[in-house]
């Protein structure tokens, strides 16, 4: 899938610059980033720590305001898109509310939007099934493992049926086995909801396995150094991780980093 599929990009960054001013120094976190993400596309923002990939995601989420350039999300400014609840977000840690049962964590956004209780309960069960956590509705977050908690966080982000899903290294705190399984589960969820996904990661194989396109970022200053199309067919299977094509993509992306 590429830009050809949609007329108007879902997310558009135009010459975006992010500068952090501290007393000690003036840090340029992002330098002139221009990119387009099409509707329904799965893209990754890939790079080492300090390359500004999380900053870039937070700009799309309007949790940060750029010091230069424009961010357009779903045809609106990033702020309008946030206020219109156009995206769901998943962070590196699950950030579940400890005092809410799993099902009430999932429907938190719906509760805040004033959705009726019966509808919410139904939605919670539906989403729990989607992320493979049937039977855990009435548990508290601490009763779940890290991987399960992160699945709850994904279900929560999906509960308002957002057009866009922003994911900030959602699986990086998990072990390799859980991470690979959740990668496959995420793709299967995505094949059902078909939202646009922006996925931040520092793992090259993870970005390749998941994405249609990988945006490679380099640090000092954070900038977009390459955009790599991932022509692997869908649905993706774990066997593809061992294919020659996969290895070629890994080395191609590794070669595209500048100054690391």
């Amino acid at each position: 899938m590429s830009l050809l599929t949609a007329g108007m990009p879902e997310i558009q960054l135009d010459n975006v610059e992010m500068r952090y001013r501290t007393e000690a120094a003036d840090v340029l976190a992002l330098h002139q980033v221009t990119l387009n993400i099409a509707k329904g596309e799965f893209v990754s923002l890939l790079g080492p720590s300090g390359c500004g990939k999380t900053t870039l995601l937070r700009l799309m989420a309007d949790l940060l305001t750029p010091t230069g350039g424009n961010v357009t999300v779903a045809g609106k400014s990033a702020k309008e898109a946030r206020l219109a609840r156009k995206y769901g977000i998943v962070f590196q840690s699950p950030v579940l509310y400890d005092w809410r049962k799993v099902k009430h964590n999932i429907t938190l956004p719906l509760e805040m939007m004033g959705v009726k209780k019966s509808v919410r309960e139904e939605k919670a069960l539906e989403l729990l099934e989607l992320v493979g956590l049937q039977g855990f509705a009435d548990k508290y977050p601490w009763q779940l493992s890290g991987g399960m908690q992160q699945r709850v966080a994904i279900a929560r982000a999906l509960s308002m049926e957002p057009e866009i899903l922003l994911m900030d290294e959602p699986f990086s705190a998990l072990d390799e086995f859980t991470r690979e399984r959740l990668n496959e589960e995420l793709l299967s969820v995505w094949s059902k909801v078909r939202s646009t996904i922006v996925f931040v990661t520092h793992s090259i194989p993870e970005s390749i396995f998941l994405s249609d396109r990988v945006f490679v970022l380099s640090p000092h200053p954070g900038r977009l150094s390459a955009v790599v199309d991932i022509p692997l067919p869908r649905p993706r299977t774990s066997g593809m991780r061992n294919s020659q094509q996969f290895y070629d993509l890994v080395s191609r992306i590794r070669g595209s980093f500048e100054g690391v």
Partner: peptide
């Protein structure tokens, strides 16, 4: 702090542990 949720383990065999 009560708001920090624990990332316990990656394994999913928790129900047994709970019992």
């Amino acid at each position: 702090s009560p708001a920090t949720s624990l990332i316990t383990t990656g394994n999913e065999s928790l129900p047994a542990e709970l019992e």
